[in-house]
Design a protein around this nucleic acid. Sequence first.
DNA 1: CTTTTGGTTCGGAAGTAAACGAACTAAATT
DNA 2: AATTTAGTTCGTTTACTTCCGAACCAAAAG
Lengths: 163, 163
Amino acid sequence: MNEKLALVEELGVHFEDADNLTPLASRIFVYLILNGAEGATFEELTEELKASKSSISTNLQLLQSNKRITYYTKCGDRKRYFKISPSHFISRLDEKIELWTKELVNNQKIYDYKKKMLEHNNNYDENNLNIQFNKQYKEFIDKMINNLTELKQNILTIINQKQ
Amino acid sequence: MNEKLALVEELGVHFEDADNLTPLASRIFVYLILNGAEGATFEELTEELKASKSSISTNLQLLQSNKRITYYTKCGDRKRYFKISPSHFISRLDEKIELWTKELVNNQKIYDYKKKMLEHNNNYDENNLNIQFNKQYKEFIDKMINNLTELKQNILTIINQKQ
DNA sequence: CTTTTGGTTCGGAAGTAAACGAACTAAATT
DNA sequence: AATTTAGTTCGTTTACTTCCGAACCAAAAG
């Protein structure tokens, strides 16, 4: 049982960084990943993660607005059972796609600006090192976005098969 | 000339987020990207970005330790001319490769933990939805890391060709 | 209709990060 | 030798984030 909490701390640090979650949100997220389909109650989270009700509440809402978690209820039981959302992967992927799309747009803006400046100084050259970089990089970003989109499709297919 | 500062603000926000730079480091970075091979002096940065000498100094050091920028000097001129490092792309890619590698390792840890728990409850099933996800995701991460590595090689080739 | 349960909300405290100012250094200039 | 230039260092201030406690609410139970 303590192996779980050790993993929560260890993986928690990673998701804080990779997904920009608050420390507590990240720990809740990992805890719920490890807990599986059963999920965990509000109470369990306050006890296991040793955090206040208010912090747990705030961070559960944050994770819900992120589409990373949901909850279900049991008949005749007032508690909510929070668990990882089946589509949490999709949400993470969407966020990454969005980030790479921004990168693409910004790369273009940089390219446009530099081209304009070079032309202005009659220095524009199609074989310029910078311009070659830019083209390579654009291709690469496209590839990354395609991979992300493809994975998203694969996962959506798996989800639909099973439902 | 004000188009440049507008771009610095706009793109600055993106790199803050995408590369985890401080606001000022991000703005310096974008400013130097737009300034091209000529670079910019310490003084120019304090004036254009309206920041104190100490903040500029600290953030220039940060960007240098990141391998994102370097400087050159002109004969008979005491100033340093800071500019984007030719390998700044490589450094960014290395950081991203590292992040995905962590993701791979952590994905494996989650898989191991869940498998152990399922086996413990005699619930392990090779066709389990979770396990299928995990395999898909591993393949995907491998692909992302390969793309990143491939791009890195392409860029290294371009750099070497030109030198 | 009072109490308990399962949360939410809000104001503030504590901790962290970013930027600053002032004092400093080392080299170059006068 | 004294001053200016080009930066660095360090202690402080400011801003922002995270978390908490206490008061609160709505539904269920006694």
